[in-house]
Nucleic acid binder design. Structure first.
Length: 258
DNA sequence: AAGGGGCACAACCGCATGAGA
DNA sequence: CTCTCATGCGGTTGTGCCCCT
């Protein structure tokens, strides 16, 4: 398979984005969408490669991105999903509205891995209960093939989870495992996000609802997920509460509670 | 006050994969 | 069916900031 050249590096800018570049990209995408990332920078007048523009948009500029620290609930969710999916950050991100795969990847490497280590350490103490999230780091993890605690279906996914070591996360996840993980997750109710959600050009009249030049995406997000992002908790965790309760709950989560 | 180390986050790199010609 | 292109994805790196000594 011949790989397309990443970008013609001649004369293209790299490194951190400036506010001006951000604004140009936002304005262009709001007006014309991003049907063709490769052509986008040229048409928008940016000295960046399309890949760089896409990354900047998806990881930072997208209007629905939830900024700020991860809540404890979100972290717990990431840990649970990571158990099931391994290092499939995009799949995990798809289940965390407003969070990007890059963000989740970063928080995993900086916070959660550490936290799992600590849990693992405490789990080695005689009284400590074995945290659910550490099951895969032990040699007796094969027992977990029996039953997925969430789906109550036989599920080898956990067994295959690459998270064999919290300090050395392998990215080895077989295709079969991925499919099985997906099957397991398919038993959940995860609201689908229409592909067009990200591709839609914000119509001109939406500019009236823009704040500081950014389109107000809350309504769109609410419509897509069916949960209000403006609810008092502000975390959208109602969604996860609903998910976990309908799935029979995740008693293991208490292991991470404060 | 200075500087060294660690942390957090943004961005880049390269491979995988799907779509279309 | 094969080839090429565009994009998605995960791993890795670069850099700025903060804290500790």
């Amino acid at each position: 398979m011949v790989r397309a050249p990443c970008c013609e590096k001649m004369g293209l800018k790299r490194g951190p984005w400036t506010q001006e570049e951000d604004q140009i990209l936002i304005t262009y995408i709001n007006l014309y969408g991003h049907d063709n990332w490769r052509a986008l920078p040229k048409q928008a007048g940016l000295l960046r490669c399309g890949k760089s523009c896409r990354l900047r948009w998806t990881n930072y500029l997208r209007p629905d991105i939830k900024r700020g620290n991860f809540s404890r609930e979100e972290e717990d969710t990431i840990i649970e999903l990571h158990e099931m999916l391994g290092n499939r950050w995009s799949a995990i991100a798809a289940r965390l509205p407003g969070r990007t795969d890059n963000e989740i990847k970063n928080v995993w490497h900086t916070h959660l891995k550490k936290r799992l280590k600590q849990n693992q350490a405490s789990a080695t103490t005689p009284v400590a209960k074995q945290p659910h999230s550490l099951k895969m780091q032990t040699n007796d993890h094969l027992e977990n093939i029996e039953t997925n605690p969430i789906t109550n279906h036989p599920n080898p996914v956990e067994q295959e989870s690459p998270q064999h070591s919290s300090s050395d996360i392998s990215s080895v996840t077989t295709a079969a495992t991925k499919m099985e993980a997906d099957d397991a997750l398919d038993n959940y109710y995860f609201p689908d996000v229409d592909e067009n959600f990200w591709c839609d050009v914000f119509p001109d009249h939406d500019y009236g609802a823009m704040t500081n030049g950014f389109p107000a995406a809350d309504d769109r997000v609410e419509n897509v997920y069916g949960y209000s992002s403006s609810k008092p908790d502000g975390n959208g965790m109602d969604f996860w509460y609903h998910l976990f309760t309908t799935a029979g709950g995740l008693p293991e989560l208490q292991d991470f509670s404060m």
